[in-house]
């Protein structure tokens, strides 16, 4: 199989899934910013509703920042300034007239249980419950182990027009692959 055939098949598969863009690999805040700009521009050119653009962008930012902060597959170092790269994937696409934002990254298996419990709770909440839960978490002091207060997941669930979908796959070692999909 030629490389063109191989990559065209890959490309077509993405298109069949309605993918507007996808990124897999090491993510940084710089990449978050650039992808976010491209996302806003693409949606504006398609004349999507400004409220939808904002919601998609908001979910995108929280999803990518969750990967940057919580991916178990990360490298940190100092290259004159602190550098933090976290591995994961983010996919933005359209499916039956709705946008979706998926993130995927490795988590430690012992963290997966707690994460799953929190996501199940969020997925079962209606708009009003999510709103009051967000308010409650916003007032709470920041937990020691969480940078940003964990309200990112609630924000994602709030902006999603349908209940969030998520899943885990156990992989080698002490790792699980985690993914989360939100529709807007």
């Amino acid at each position: 199989m030629s490389i063109a055939t191989e990559y065209f098949a890959f490309h077509r598969q993405l298109q069949e899934h309605g993918v507007v863009f996808s990124f897999a690999g090491y993510l940084s805040e710089g990449i978050l910013f650039s992808l976010g700009e491209a996302l806003k521009q693409k949606m504006s050119l398609e004349e999507a509703d400004s409220r939808v653009i904002k919601r998609v962008f908001s979910v995108f930012v929280e999803q990518v920042q969750n990967i940057i902060r919580y991916s178990a597959d990360r490298v940190e170092g100092d290259l004159g300034r602190p550098v933090e790269l976290s591995s994961g994937m983010v996919v933005v696409g359209r499916e039956q007239g709705r946008f979706f934002v998926v993130c995927g990254n490795m988590v430690r298996r012992d963290e997966a249980t707690e994460l799953q419990r929190r996501l199940e709770r969020l997925a079962s909440m209606d708009k009003d419950s999510l709103k009051s839960y967000y308010r409650e978490r916003l007032r709470a002091p920041v937990e020691d182990d969480s940078r940003g207060g964990n309200i990112g997941l609630i924000e994602i669930a709030r902006r999603s027009t349908d209940p969030i979908e998520f899943g885990f796959v156990e992989v080698a070692g002490d790792r699980s692959f985690f993914c989360l999909k939100a529709y807007i």
């Binding site: 962008f57 908001s58 920042q65 940003g148 207060g149 924000e155």
Partner: peptide, 12 residues
Amino acid sequence: SYFNSSSAKALM
């Protein structure tokens, strides 16, 4: 016009 969840925490 927009703020993320960490900024919401700071505003609070």
